[in-house]
Design a protein around this nucleic acid. Structure first.
Lengths: 247, 247
DNA sequence: CTTGACCATGACCCTGCGTCAGGGTTCGAC
DNA sequence: GTCGAACCCTGACGCAGGGTCATGGTCAAG
């Protein structure tokens, strides 16, 4: 008659696991000796071997007791179901691996390649690190809501950045974040923004493309909402809107 | 300012998950409004998008906070580690699928094919269902301790069963389980067993092959240990041992 | 008689949330 | 102004499959 520890080392399972099986009702409690120790016979060992085999094969404990008492047909059916389950889990993990690969490939995070290219470009141009982060965060928000349109929008914006004048404008707007709310340069800047088509916030006209300095709008919105308002940019947005609707 | 439910539906996660991220410290608790509701700004949404992206990619929550604040090199290293992890999990699941396949293929359970063949054979020969189960259980025990030797042993025993005399002996021993302890036929049976080389229990000489009627020994041992002793077979084993060591 | 290796039970820990339970809040409709 | 539906809050238990104490009894050897 074996003790629990002996059975465990014999079969290569832990003592805790065996007690767990008892608790789950998978393995009947054996008789106890005078001191209360569990004493196992060969039948218990056999049952345990079967449990271990199933469990190693990935059968969830809950189904093992079904299987132990199943007829050959039930057995086959259940095994097939479990196998299907495992197949699903595998393809799930594979999907995850693909996503992981995208994460590490997309240098900075879960954005479509067009956006990544755009971010690289604005960094190249000399945009401040903060502004780049804001640009990124804006795109993240956009992706969450318009995943299909985003690549197109990003490509469009990237194309606009070929224009040196637009680049200058973009950089100046970035600088403007440090200006005060009544800085006179804001007026000139607003004029320039308008010459590029003005501001268009994504929520202004639903699902239409965002162009130009929408990120600017986003900056002000996001800053305001996260508790760090940027007065100069707020004012700039105001000025641009005034020019856009002069009536 | 968004409520937790709005953020959740916007991003396609559950409210519970968001609260869970707060609890795990992945997502900082946002400010509350007058009634104690959480109010989320765009920054929180961005953080959540990043968390969701990592989590969807299979990054464990515990590592997400590392990654969120990691430098590009750390990021790459960690991502590689996680990918390795996923690969392992996948091959693990594949291994399980193979085991599952073996389970269902080996009709009656997790035994090497040689043993399955042997079991089929003894069933064919006409061994009682009980005896077949005992035979199976014995092999299960043997596999647990001598997984490498078992296929050889089973093949050897299967070969012996070609001999019709041996078959008869086997069947008679099966019948003997129903005899009384002092049945005179036991003597003759013991003689016959000896003419086939006698009994050899696996524990008798360590790792040497088991032959002939070891299952008989196993029957008595197992029966005794699981509380249902078989007196006639116990006696038979005794007799065989007497003949094996006549001094 | 003590020491170290076992055994017992019970209870808390992990992951990633789901799902009550037992409240309070807000909003639109009447 | 009040009703109900739909939110929100915290706290706690649940799952699989055990790991890991904590606390105390048992056993064999020296």
């Amino acid at each position: 008659m074996l003790t629990i520890g002996q059975v465990a080392t014999y079969l290569g399972v832990t003592v805790r696991a065996i007690r767990h099986y008892h608790q789950r009702g998978l393995l009947p409690e054996p008789e106890r000796d005078a001191s209360g120790y569990r004493r196992y016979g060969a039948d218990a060992v056999v049952t345990l071997v079967r449990i271990k085999a199933m469990s190693d094969a990935g059968v969830p404990l809950a189904r093992i007791d079904e299987l132990m008492a199943a007829s050959p047909e039930q057995f086959a059916t259940s095994v097939a179901a479990i196998d299907t389950d495992l197949k699903e889990q595998i393809s799930d993990l594979k999907r995850r691996r693909r996503r992981i690969a995208e994460l590490s490939a997309g240098d900075r995070l879960f954005l479509p390649e067009e956006v990544v290219a755009l971010l690289d470009r604005v960094r190249e141009i000399g945009l401040s690190q903060e502004a780049v982060r804001t640009e990124r965060d804006t795109w993240i928000l956009l992706v969450a809501q318009y995943p299909d349109q985003v690549p197109g929008w990003a490509a469009e914006k990237l194309a606009m950045l070929e224009d040196v004048a637009f680049q200058r404008l973009y950089l100046t707007a970035d600088q403007a974040a440090g200006w005060s709310r009544d800085d006179p340069r804001l007026e000139a800047l607003a004029d320039e923004v308008n010459s590029f088509g003005g501001l268009r916030a994504p929520d202004t006209d639903g699902k239409k493309p965002i162009l130009a300095l929408d990120a600017l709008v986003a900056v002000t919105i996001m800053a305001a909402q996260s508790g760090k308002p940027v007065p100069a940019l707020e004012r700039l947005v105001e000025l641009c809107r005034l020019r856009a609707k002069p009536n």
